[in-house]
């Protein structure tokens, strides 16, 4: 082989080497993004389950009038039931309507300062109300982090090279969660200013 030929072969090898390193680093990035996406998804799921439970706790506490209690208990139970069914189907999502409905009901019952002030009178219910407020906030945060990560992952996956070479493997296309997660405003304000509470047992 001539010296010129050897140089060409060496250059080709170098280019191939650089390409391999580049592609594997993109694949690694994508892999990590998908792992984090799974974590945020699981977190959102967990926060929704927590919120339903915290809602039921408040409904049972006797701090609300009976109409409000019944409304919240029904909404919380529907959310819990939908979660169990979705989990049995192996379908982690598909309960957005039910969770959004719970948000609407929570705002209807605990969105106004006078309603929160009335419930606040009950000393035993106060930690439960704080828990509920915090779990509502965590739902909103978890969804925001999930959707942010979804957008970032999708942006990487839309790159031409990634699509062409199937660098994402068989990972499902990331989808944002559409959900009404607006917390009851007055409840959040009251809980924030109550300071840290001993954990509810």
């Amino acid at each position: 082989m001539s010296a010129q030929g050897a140089v060409i072969v060496l250059c080709c090898l170098l280019v191939v080497g650089v390409l391999v390193v580049m592609l594997s680093s993109i694949a690694g990035r994508l892999d990590r993004l998908h792992i984090r996406l799974a974590t945020t998804h699981a977190s959102l799921n967990r926060q929704l389950i927590d919120r339903a439970a915290a809602t039921a706790d408040v409904a049972h506490s006797g701090a609300l009038d009976s109409a409000c209690s019944v409304l919240l208990l029904a909404a919380a139970d529907t959310a819990r039931h939908a979660t169990t069914q979705a989990a049995q189907r192996g379908d982690v999502w598909g309960r957005d309507d039910v969770e959004s409905a719970l948000s609407v009901d929570l705002r209807a019952v605990l969105g106004r300062p006078d309603a929160v002030a009335a419930a606040w009178h009950s000393k035993t219910a106060r930690p439960l109300l704080v828990e509920l407020a915090e779990s509502c906030d965590r739902v909103r945060l978890a969804r925001r982090f999930h959707d942010d990560l979804t957008a970032r992952t999708a942006a990487v996956r839309r790159q031409r090279l990634v699509r062409l070479l199937h660098l994402a493997g068989h990972a499902a296309w990331p989808v944002v969660v559409e959900l009404d997660d607006e917390p009851p405003a007055a409840l959040l304000v009251a809980a924030d200013h109550a300071g840290p509470m001993p954990p509810a047992t």
Binding site: R46, D57, A87
Partner: peptide, 23 residues
């Protein structure tokens, strides 16, 4: 919210949590 943890800890809930977390 980032770590997927929470502090709510009532009895009915922990049943549901375990069944879902396995999934």
């Amino acid at each position: 919210a980032a770590a997927g943890s929470g502090r709510v800890a009532s009895r009915q809930r922990s049943l549901t949590t375990t069944s879902v977390s396995r999934d």
